[in-house]
Amino acid sequence: MRERQAIRHRRRAREFEAFVAGAAGRLLHAATLLTAEPPDDNARARQLLTAALARTYADWERLRGEDPYDHTRQDLAARFARTTWRYHQHGRLCAPHHREPVAGDGGGVLERLTPQERLVLVLRLYEGVAEEQTAAQLGLPAERVRAICTRATAAMRSTPAGPAAEVTAP
């Protein structure tokens, strides 16, 4: 009995290791986009991903045919959404609708967006999650998700404010 259990645990560990080897890079990139941290200094993204992977490992036997990548991505997004309310950036609480201050120090690509805008943009455009699925996961109407995605895309296409955007005439 113990031997069968040990064999099952080793098989589970090998399957999970193979999953992590294939998916961790993309999931870490998604987490880094969510946290708006620079790719070379993404401690918060790594913490989010580690917790999401731990949950996936704990649920591994119960997944039974479910996509472990999708499971991990959903957990990652949910953890980001929950912690956004408590996360302090530059000494103040950041709510999902509140724009975080732009550090201007070469931070993450999406740092100009609100946490909610980042979450929708990453799920919709980077991860390719359908609008309806994103809405269901976030508990929002699909129209709201569409509006947030449109606003976030427009914000990313606009020229950033600040000295770099100023053009002086000769």
Rank of each mutant, 00 (worst) to 15 (best):
G104H: 02
G104K: 05
G104T: 03
G104S: 02
D105N: 14
G106E: 05
G106R: 10
G107Y: 02
G107F: 03
G107T: 05
G108I: 00
V109N: 04
L110C: 01
E111I: 09
R112M: 12
R112E: 09
R112N: 05
R112G: 09
R112L: 13
R112P: 02
R112Y: 07
L113Q: 09
T114H: 00
T114D: 01
T114N: 03
T114S: 12
T114M: 08
P115Y: 06
P115M: 06
P115I: 03
Q116F: 03
Q116D: 03
Q116R: 15
E117N: 04
E117Q: 15
E117G: 00
E117P: 03
R118M: 03
R118C: 04
V120D: 10
L121R: 07
V122N: 01
V122E: 00
V122S: 01
L123G: 06
L123D: 07
L123E: 13
R124F: 13
R124V: 01
Y126L: 09
E127R: 07
G128F: 09
G128Q: 08
G128P: 05
G128A: 09
V129G: 02
V129D: 02
A130V: 11
A130W: 09
E131M: 15
E132R: 15
E132D: 15
Q133S: 04
Q133V: 00
Q133P: 04
T134E: 06
A135Y: 06
A136F: 07
A136K: 15
A136S: 14
A136E: 15
A136V: 11
Q137H: 12
Q137N: 07
Q137S: 10
L138T: 06
L138M: 10
L140T: 02
L140S: 12
P141R: 04
P141C: 06
P141K: 06
A142I: 05
E143V: 12
E143Q: 14
E143C: 07
R144S: 09
R144I: 07
V145G: 10
V145R: 02
V145H: 11
V145M: 13
R146F: 14
R146D: 11
R146K: 14
R146G: 08
R146Y: 13
A147F: 01
A147D: 10
A147K: 08
A147S: 13
I148N: 08
I148M: 05
I148G: 09
C149E: 12
C149F: 05
C149V: 11
C149H: 15
C149R: 14
T150E: 07
T150R: 14
T150V: 04
R151I: 09
R151G: 03
R151S: 12
A152M: 07
A152D: 02
A152S: 10
A152E: 09
A152I: 09
T153D: 05
T153S: 09
T153I: 00
T153C: 01
A154H: 14
A154T: 13
A155S: 12
A155F: 06
A155M: 10
